[in-house]
Design a binder for these strands. Sequence first.
DNA 1: CCCCCACATTGATGCATATCAACTCCGTCC
DNA 2: GGACGGAGTTGATATGCATCAATGTGGGGG
Lengths: 250, 250
Amino acid sequence: MARVSAHDGDGPHSLRVGCSHATCETICADCPVRGLAVCSALEPEELDEFSRLSQTVHLPGKATLIAQDEEAEYIFNLTAGVVRLYRLLSDGRRQIVGFALPGDFLGLAMTKRNTFSADAVAPVAACRFPREVFARYLAEKPHLLRRLHELSTHELTLAQDQMVLLGRRTAEEKVAAFLIAFRDRWSRINQAHLHIPLPMSRQDIGDFLGLTVETVSRMMTKLARDKVIVIVPDGVRILDEKKLESLCAG
Amino acid sequence: MARVSAHDGDGPHSLRVGCSHATCETICADCPVRGLAVCSALEPEELDEFSRLSQTVHLPGKATLIAQDEEAEYIFNLTAGVVRLYRLLSDGRRQIVGFALPGDFLGLAMTKRNTFSADAVAPVAACRFPREVFARYLAEKPHLLRRLHELSTHELTLAQDQMVLLGRRTAEEKVAAFLIAFRDRWSRINQAHLHIPLPMSRQDIGDFLGLTVETVSRMMTKLARDKVIVIVPDGVRILDEKKLESLCAG
DNA sequence: CCCCCACATTGATGCATATCAACTCCGTCC
DNA sequence: GGACGGAGTTGATATGCATCAATGTGGGGG
């Protein structure tokens, strides 16, 4: 598997090719998200073949992976870091439709044009596949398609959760639900139940929850004042799990 | 194809079996949503086989097709009428996550338990498949799976549109966007570009847009006062299409 | 080391939408 | 025909969150 990196200084699209295909099997076998991602649908011998279709790319924070309305050249399988997915209105309002974590697949829809933008919140590593190549491979692997369909319907369920949150929850419930949901997703990758890292900015959280930065900040300090959480550098620590969960109002 | 009906008086779950399998080919061939629905993925000879797996059901307004958190016995292919899909919070707040129109598929996710509720806004007709039976059939038809995957990713895109709407649009934009979107979907089934039928209540529209009944009503009368629409029995008529579209703020 | 800038927090005020309440319209059931 | 109830509209008021503004904080570069 070719390895490719981008550097801040060279702009978001500059890439450096590193190690060769020869090492790909070991890399895939060691993959931190093996078992979580699409690849879990593949047999070991298919995995080898599959991985030859991809490049490992490393991108710095703020790098663009996917640009809304542009032709979809690549699809990505995130292996490290955090990505925000969003749509923009013409007047600049932004709605973040999701955060992608290691193991997440970007470009499920396989449409010709991207229906959202995606950029790195923090430095990112990903397996990148040319869309056409992936589509051809997919056409002859029904179990991979099945896996992809599972992932899309899971995404759809999450999207519906998010609609309930955006349409019918108060600011405090939104922030509490966000913290719980993010912790649950994070703990699937890296057990650390009570410390929740928050690599994204308050603005990002606000644009995800349909709130302003100020409101997010106020709700965070309210939760801290109520001894439900403590705000720590780059995240929060949960003090009262039960109370935080009860604030989500199922 | 067996035909089955429910009557108001007998409660939402009473069903009457009507015509037999012998007529199913003609029925499927004449299906008003042929070409729109999942079935468009099937060859004529497969369609015959496929239709034998289903029953045609007729349900009155308010009948429940799908109940949240219950075991998913059936999946549905809507052929006539309108269905609301929603989730409830424990305190009674409701978020409608979508309206299903003829041709729409209910139960894409094929999960063991339903992740939302669905009931008829107006009397409904649908092809109903036992989930297990459909799943078995699906397992041996990759092109049907492909079609299902197309439908899910389309749903996902719509869900993301809805997130933008719920998180970042004003009440007036929400109502305008709803009218335009509903007209576009409706016109794919029944050409009538300027008259938009609205079989659902104002409460339903509010629960879809994250607004109260009163706000929906006010925005409707504002649009009418501004000569953008006229409110007619069971719907609206568009007077100024350009203006209505511009209010959506893309 | 200190300046700078982006991010976060806090406070004061405004506004869009929710809430509460009254009234109309219309269809249904006695 | 009249009583009733649900849906829709309209008005008065309340409030949750946005907006505007000021201050605090931490990291990177000269």
